[in-house]
Amino acid sequence: MGQTAIVIGATGVVGREVVAELITCEAIARVITLTRRPVPCDSDKVENHVVDFARLEDWADCFQADLLFSCLGTTLKQAGSLEAQRRVDIDHQLSAARLAAAQGVTHYLLVSSSGAN
């Protein structure tokens, strides 16, 4: 039986590519995408959940998986303020990591922007 992968940030450029790669990977049986808006997908492997990232704990059951790919991020311009950008780039990432760890996820892969510190 294949592994289950979670992708947060699946609507962005990198996230879409990660999902596309996971769909073609024979070792992956299921891909759970957690997004702010619905994401249509032609693959039976993909299960999309529309979530409020500020209340990510409400979707704790969705974190029962083997792998977590975090492609979630924003720009200052998109976020509108440094505080809002921090919520997306740090707080939501940390919440997802904690939920995944509590559910036994063993691999967490974080995609960050170049030059981030």
Rank of each mutant, 00 (worst) to 15 (best):
M1Q: 14
M1L: 12
T4A: 08
I6E: 03
V7A: 07
V7E: 03
I8Q: 00
G9T: 12
A10F: 08
A10R: 09
A10W: 05
T11P: 13
G12T: 14
G12Y: 04
V13Y: 12
V13Q: 15
V14N: 10
G15W: 06
R16P: 04
V18S: 05
V19I: 13
V19A: 07
V19E: 08
V19G: 10
L22Y: 07
L22W: 02
C25L: 08
E26P: 14
E26L: 09
A27S: 15
A27C: 08
A29L: 05
R30S: 13
I32T: 11
T33W: 01
T33C: 13
L34I: 13
T35G: 12
R36S: 15
R36L: 04
R37E: 05
R37S: 15
P38G: 07
P38A: 10
V39M: 15
V39Y: 02
P40D: 10
D42R: 12
D44M: 06
K45H: 11
K45A: 06
E47Y: 07
E47M: 10
N48H: 05
V50R: 10
V50F: 03
V50D: 06
V50H: 04
V50A: 08
V50C: 13
V51D: 01
D52V: 05
F53V: 02
A54R: 07
A54E: 13
L56D: 08
E57W: 00
D58Y: 01
W59V: 07
A60H: 09
A60E: 12
A60V: 08
D61N: 11
D61Q: 13
C62N: 06
C62G: 09
F63Y: 11
A65K: 07
D66M: 04
D66Q: 06
L67W: 09
S70R: 00
S70A: 01
L72Y: 05
T74S: 04
T74A: 02
K77T: 14
Q78W: 00
A79G: 03
G80K: 02
S81R: 03
L82C: 02
L82R: 09
E83C: 02
E83H: 00
R87E: 02
V88L: 00
D89H: 05
D89T: 13
I90Q: 02
D91C: 10
D91A: 11
D91M: 00
H92K: 00
H92G: 00
Q93L: 10
Q93N: 02
A97D: 05
A97G: 10
A100G: 15
T106K: 14
T106W: 01
T106V: 11
T106F: 03
H107T: 15
L109G: 05
L109S: 06
L109E: 03
L109N: 12
L110E: 08
V111I: 14
S112P: 10
S112W: 00
S112C: 14
S114A: 14
G115L: 07
G115P: 13
A116F: 06
N117C: 01
